[in-house]
């Protein structure tokens, strides 16, 4: 176990380094300059020079990267060029919101997908199953921002049942979570269906049935649990994607999450802010990978060899 953790930590640090370097290079290659973006079309050369000096943009790029890296290594995240606030403070405000929404969205997608998927797998010819399959197709095809805007239009503007945006009270989370969960539930339903269906054709299911086990036990203990790995992997990827940004939904619902902050950072070429966010997201995704590995090992006896 110790060796496993050691290996993981080293690859963890290396990945984070590569991520920070790539982020830095991309922001260097992009045309545009934070000082110029702050000044807009009214800036004078004097003002520009002064601002560059103040933001320390007059120093060579490589030097700035190394300075940032060392400071970050010591836990200093720097100051956002756009907001003039600590990056850690800004990320700290935005992160809980994004995490909450992401976890709620994937959680509710799973909660809907598991019964729906099993149902379709078990009763493929049934009208209910056909209807569900149809909904799944539609759910996968709809663009998220559009679903979000339709939901606001219908539930917030026309019927005023739920808030149109913001974060006042738990009800404000219903629409964004629903918007994110719908297409993900569709994908997961297909995954559950495929996994369960395949498992149902396996020998061990026939054996279980031959032993005279009740169909309920056959279905859940033998068929579904064997098909669940693919589902977990997909859900893990979905969660990672959401950590990296619920940008569209944050924009539509005016939620001050990590995605909006990242977008503002990129548009303003705000290097410390973008680096800070990217590092947090990278670490989250690496952690998620690790938890996923662990979970699979726990669930699958064949992987418990170490």
């Amino acid at each position: 176990m110790g060796r496993y953790l050691g290996q993981k930590s080293i690859s963890f640090i290396l990945t984070a380094l590569v991520v920070s370097l790539v982020t830095f290079l991309i922001l260097q290659v992009l045309p545009g300059d934070p000082a110029r973006l702050i000044l807009g079309t009214e800036g004078s050369p004097q003002a520009y020079a002064r601002l560059r000096e103040e933001l320390r943009l007059d120093q060579p790029a490589g030097e700035r990267y190394l300075q940032w890296l060392f400071a970050f290594g010591y836990g200093r995240w720097g100051t956002s060029l756009r907001y003039g606030l600590g990056v850690r403070e800004l990320v700290g405000q935005a992160l809980p919101l994004t995490l909450t929404i992401a976890v709620l969205a994937v959680g509710s997608a799973l909660a809907a997908a598991i019964p729906a998927g099993i149902y379709i797998a078990v009763r493929p010819g049934n009208w209910g199953a056909k209807g569900l399959s149809f909904l799944v197709q539609i759910g996968m095809a709809l663009p998220q921002f559009w679903v979000g805007i339709l939901l606001i239009q219908f539930l917030a503007v026309r019927h005023r049942l739920l808030p149109a945006g913001g974060r006042e009270g738990p009800l404000a989370f219903v629409l964004p979570v629903l918007t994110l969960a719908l297409p993900r539930a569709a994908v997961l339903t297909r995954q559950v269906r495929a996994g369960t269906k395949e498992a149902l054709t396996q020998d061990y299911v026939r054996t279980a049935r031959a032993k005279g086990l009740p169909e309920r036990v056959v279905l859940f203990k033998h068929a579904f649990l064997n098909g669940v790995f693919g589902v977990l992997t997909v859900a893990g990827i979905q969660l990672a994607q959401l950590f990296a940004g619920t940008i569209v939904v944050e924009q539509v619902f005016g939620l001050p999450g990590l995605g909006q902050l990242l977008l503002a950072g990129v548009f303003q070429r705000d290097l410390p802010l973008v680096q800070g966010i990217v590092m947090v997201v990278a670490v989250l995704i690496l952690l998620l990978n690790w938890i996923h590995d662990l979970l699979l090992a726990l669930l699958d006896p064949r992987l418990r060899y170490d």
């Binding site: 805007i149 606001i152 239009q153 917030a156 005023r160 149109a164 619902f253 977008l263």
Partner: peptide, 12 residues
């Protein structure tokens, strides 16, 4: 930041 959300928030 989003124009459409602005309008929807106004209507709501």
């Amino acid at each position: 930041p989003d124009e459409n959300s602005m309008v929807l928030n106004l209507k709501a």
